[in-house]
């Protein structure tokens, strides 16, 4: 089954430009592994980078630089890295590297009402990245986010309003969208969710009421 819900162009362009931070990039790269259509668009965005490089005003190269690089060249090309991987795998690369293996090794942390999560560590402090496991037929818990949220389905599917999202599909939601994703009844749904990192309030009272106010 092929992907129906694709990456928005602004994400593809920012990713190709190298301007997208690591958290969002994990969702983009994982979607690209599952979606030949978006890979074709990503190739165009890369070609834009190549043309921009061609277009840069450039002084003539210096002999000193050439001599320095020449001295660093060794014969024998870099061997292509190949790590034989047992197939099949549910999580595509690069996600498997971040999780530390495929789904069967995940140590889930309970979120209540049967849902669970795995927090994924990155060097990017502006985003929060996690795997979510939603029991069949149940809604995604504690669902408030202040900014953008990308949700990429890995197994099962969820429904949001009239729209179904299945493996490889990505939902791109911003703060203005009130939505309530619910796992479809046939199976548990596992997704990758990337959000803007939540605002941290110093007062414990504010932290206490934050979930109630939805801020």
């Amino acid at each position: 089954m092929s992907v129906i819900h694709h990456l928005n162009d602004d994400l593809l362009v920012s990713y190709a430009a190298g301007a997208l931070s690591e958290g969002w990039s994990i969702a983009v790269a994982t979607h690209l592994a599952l979606c030949p259509d978006c890979r074709r668009r990503a190739a165009v965005a890369d070609a834009v980078g190549g043309a921009m490089l061609d277009d840069l005003d450039a002084a003539p190269s210096e002999d000193r630089s050439w001599q320095a690089v020449r001295a660093r060249l060794t014969s024998g090309s870099e061997p292509e890295k190949s790590h034989p991987v047992a197939s099949p795998q549910t999580l595509p690369q690069p996600l498997r590297d971040y999780v530390g293996g495929d789904l069967n090794g995940v140590r889930w942390q309970a979120l209540g009402k049967g849902a669970s999560q795995l927090r994924i560590k990155t060097a990017d402090r502006a985003t929060q990245v996690r795997l979510l496991r939603i029991p069949a037929g149940k809604p995604v818990p504690e669902h408030t986010h202040g900014g953008r949220e990308l949700t990429l389905v890995l197994t099962g599917s969820f429904r949001d309003g009239d729209t179904i999202f299945a493996r490889g599909d990505i939902e791109d939601a911003d703060a203005s969208l009130t939505h309530q994703p619910i796992a479809t009844p046939e199976a548990d749904c596992i997704c990758l969710a990337v959000t803007d990192a939540p605002l941290r309030f110093s007062s414990w009272i504010v932290r206490l009421v934050q979930p109630i106010l939805g801020i």
């Binding site: 983009v28 197939s87 795998q89 498997r96 990155t122 990017d124």
Partner: peptide, 15 residues
């Protein structure tokens, strides 16, 4: 000083 996550065309889960 961040990683750039990229897909791997040789990965068994790659479509």
């Amino acid at each position: 000083r961040e990683r750039r996550p990229e897909f791997d065309p040789n990965d068994p889960a790659f479509v």
